[in-house]
Simulated assay, not measured.
Amino acid sequence: MSDLPHNFQTDTLAKILPVDALTVRLYDRADELTTDAAKITQRYLQNLLTQQETARVILATGNSQIEFLSKLVNLGEIDWSRIVFFHLDEYLGIDANHPASFRRYLCERVEEKVHPAAFHYIDGDTVQPLAECDRYTKLLLSQPIDLCCLGMGGNGHLAFNEPSVADFQDPDYIKLVKLELSTRQQQVNQGYFNNIAAVPQYAFTLTIPAICLAHKIFCFALGKHKAQAVQQSLEGAIATSCPATILRSQAQATLFLDADSASLLGKSKVKS
């Protein structure tokens, strides 16, 4: 950890670093990160449910979420019957049973295990995608979102807000976007598709303003393949060229890093 800034503060598992309005939590190992993040989420939801009847949570998919979601579900002591779930994004044109469907991922890992009050999924294989955007927008805006959990992409994207389509002032809350080649290749690299031709070219995504509406944002970046995006996000200019930089303007956001994803911090100044 010698290359990291000196103003990290020691916590039980994490070192804490404020970066603008954002709180960064750094862990030596990924398993420590996911364990602590699950406990923090559990306590946050437990506390919410002492103050309000239901809590509304947006969940994400991808490899960064698997262990976190598993540990959160296994912790228990949350009244899941009072939790309403949403999800961040979904491919256009694949059904809910497709092996790479985000609906299937979340249904198998969360809904079927905890039986929440509701799980509102984006209908990826709808024949009316614009109407689906309208439907989901109304659900998102019907009551406040208490928590959004998500990962950071290798090019700094949040959900499917790629640098080419990210808009910090987006008037929409969910939209259709064309996926960048690097993101489609990442889905192949992570084993969700056999080859890049099988990866859909378009997807639904919650927009940056929709993510930032959440009262709490927990973002995860694990592994050396995320190190460059993490460095750009924390040391570069806040700009749509690296969408995750917007987190630095969000006081309700926490970024969870392991030693690998934080390995480039402080080593060279990112140019804006």
Rank of each mutant, 00 (worst) to 15 (best):
D20K: 15
A21F: 08
E32S: 15
L33V: 12
D36C: 11
K39Y: 15
T41G: 13
L49S: 05
L49M: 11
T50P: 05
A55W: 06
A55Q: 10
V57L: 10
N63F: 01
Q65T: 09
F68I: 06
S70G: 08
L72Y: 12
V73P: 11
E77W: 05
I83H: 03
I83R: 08
V84H: 11
H87Y: 07
G93L: 01
I94P: 08
A96P: 00
H98D: 14
E108L: 15
E112T: 12
A118N: 14
D125Y: 13
T126E: 06
V127I: 10
V127G: 03
A131K: 04
A131W: 01
D134H: 12
T137L: 02
L140G: 08
S142T: 03
D146I: 01
L147N: 07
C149T: 13
L150N: 06
M152Q: 01
G153S: 08
G154C: 11
H157S: 02
V165N: 09
A166P: 03
D167I: 03
D167S: 08
D167N: 15
D167V: 04
F168N: 07
D172P: 04
L181C: 12
G191L: 12
G191M: 07
N194I: 01
N195V: 09
A197Y: 11
A197W: 10
T205F: 01
T205N: 01
T207C: 00
P209G: 06
C212G: 02
H215D: 14
K216W: 03
F218A: 05
A221E: 02
G223I: 07
K224L: 08
H225L: 14
H225T: 09
A227P: 03
Q228P: 02
S233R: 00
L234T: 02
A237V: 11
P243E: 08
A244N: 05
A244T: 05
I246L: 15
L247Y: 05
T254C: 01
L255N: 06
A262L: 04
A262P: 01
A262H: 02
G266K: 10
K267M: 10
K267A: 03
K271N: 13
